[in-house]
Computed example of a mutant assay.
Amino acid sequence: MAHLPSELVSHSQKVCSLYKRAIRCIRDWNHKIENYRIQAILMRERFDKNKDIKDMRYATYLLQEGEKELFSNQHYHPMTYPNSASGGAYGRKGETPDCVLDYWHPLEKARYPKYFARREQMKNEYEKWYFETYPDQKKTIKDH
C-alpha cells in the first residue's frame, strides 16, 4: 500500500512528488541510458525554470498542468521494483523450515557443535512437553 500522508502536503512537496514521478515516467519510456539522461536533464530544466514563481495561483496552475501532462504521457506498462507493493516479489519471504537442518551431513553439523547440541536439547524438551500436554498422541504415533 502506498504511503498516505496524514497531514497537509505543502506545495513544494507536491512539486517534488511530481518531479519524481516525471523522472520515473521518462525512465519507463527511455531504456537507453543516454536518452534517459538527456530527457531527465531537460525535465530538470523545465522545473528549475519555474522554481522562483511567487504567485501561488500561477504555481498551482502549473502544478495542475504538470499533473495532466504526466497523466497523458504515462507508460502503458511502467517499471516496478520487485519488492514494491505492485512488484512480483512483494511479500515473499524465503524462510527455510527448521526441519531442513535434520538432513545436514554430520560433517556439516560438526562445524557448529554448540548450536546443534542446543538444538537437540530443545527438540527433546519440546517432545517431552508435547507428549505431556497431549498424552493420547503418543499412542497414535506408536501405532504407525
Results as ranks from 00 to 15, higher is better:
Gln137Pro: 05
Asp98Phe: 02
Asp52Ile: 01
Ser84Gly: 09
Ala22Glu: 12
His75Phe: 15
Phe131Thr: 02
Tyr134Phe: 12
Glu7Tyr: 06
Arg44His: 01
Lys49Asn: 13
His75Ile: 11
Gly87Asn: 07
Ile38Pro: 09
Asp55Tyr: 01
Gln74Val: 14
Thr133Leu: 10
Tyr76Ile: 13
Met43Val: 01
Lys49Tyr: 10
Ile33Ala: 12
Met56Arg: 06
Glu95Tyr: 09
Cys16Trp: 07
Glu95Thr: 08
Ser10Ala: 08
His3Gln: 14
Ala89Arg: 10
His77Asp: 09
Asn50Tyr: 15
Gly91Val: 00
Lys49Ser: 13
Lys20Cys: 05
Ala117Thr: 15
Ile41Thr: 15
Cys99Gln: 04
Tyr36Ala: 08
Glu132Asn: 11
Lys128Trp: 13
Lys109Leu: 09
Tyr81Met: 07
Tyr61Gly: 00
Asn35Cys: 04
Arg57Cys: 10
Leu8Ile: 13
Leu63Pro: 08
Lys20Ala: 07
Met43Phe: 08
Gly87Pro: 07
Asn83Glu: 11
Asn73Val: 04
Arg44Lys: 07
Met43Gly: 02
Tyr19Phe: 12
Lys114His: 12
Phe131Arg: 02
Ile33His: 14
Ser10Gly: 15
Arg37Tyr: 04
Leu8Trp: 05
Asp136Tyr: 10
Gly88Met: 00
Arg57Ala: 08
Arg27Trp: 01
Asp48Trp: 06
Glu95Asn: 06
